[in-house]
Amino acid sequence: MKRRTAGPRPGRLLMFLPALLLVGCGISPTGPTTAGAPASGALQPGTRTHDARLLFVGPTGLRYAARTSTSPVGPQEAIDLLLKGPSQAERKRGLTTLVPAMSGRVTAEAGRNHVVDLRLPTTVEHLDHAAVSQLVCTAAKALDRDQTKVLVRVRESQLDGTWDVRCDSVGNAYPAAAKHR
C-alpha cells in the first residue's frame, strides 16, 4: 500500500474554483451616480476636422502644437495662425513665439513636388534661428505631415534669389544643400 503525503490535491482546488468565481472582485453593485455636466465644446457628429501643426518655442526647445479647424489648413492658413501667436492654453503650457511683428505680410504658397514658397517682408538675418524654424517648419508641416519631405524656398523682401531650406524631424530649419541627419 502506497502512502499519500500531505499537500494540495488538484481535485480539491478545482472544487473551490466556482466559489472563487462567484465572489468576484469585491465591487458591490450600485445604482447610477452623478458624474458632473456632460462634455461641452465637442463638434457635431459627422463634422470633419483638420489639424494645423504650429511650431512654437517651449521651455525645452521647439514644440509643435495642434490646432483644430473645420476646413483644410494649407501653408498660408498655418502661417496666419502662427503669426497670431500661441493660444491661452498653449501659453499655459509654456509655449511662446520668437517670430517678431513684421511690417508687411508673410505669405506661403504650396507648389508642386513638395515645395512651399515662403515670402518674408524682411530679411532672414533680422530673425532669430528659432523664428526662421517656426515659419519654415510650420509651412512645411501644413503641406505634409512629414515635414522632412518638403523643400521651402524662402524669398526675402527686396532681394533676388531664394534660400532653399528643409526641416528636420523635430522642427529645426537648415539649408537644403547641407547634409543633415
Rank of each mutant, 00 (worst) to 15 (best):
T5Y: 08
T5S: 07
G7W: 14
P10C: 13
G24K: 05
G26F: 05
I27L: 11
P29Y: 04
P29S: 09
H50T: 07
A52F: 14
R53N: 09
R63K: 05
A65H: 03
A66M: 10
A66W: 10
R67L: 07
R67P: 03
P72A: 15
V73E: 12
V73Y: 12
G74A: 11
P75Q: 10
D80H: 11
D80E: 14
L83K: 03
Q88C: 12
A89L: 05
K92I: 10
G94N: 09
L95T: 04
V99F: 04
P100F: 00
M102L: 15
R105V: 06
V106H: 01
A108E: 03
A110V: 08
A110L: 06
G111F: 03
G111I: 02
R112P: 12
V115M: 13
V116E: 10
R119P: 09
T122D: 01
T122N: 01
T122H: 00
V124P: 00
V124H: 00
V124Y: 01
H126I: 00
D128T: 07
H129E: 15
A130G: 12
L135D: 03
C137I: 10
T138A: 15
A139V: 08
A140R: 14
K149V: 08
K149F: 07
V150D: 03
V150Y: 06
R153T: 09
S157F: 02
Q158D: 01
D160V: 00
G161Q: 01
T162D: 06
D164T: 02
R166W: 03
A173T: 14
A173H: 02
P175I: 07
K179P: 11
R181K: 10
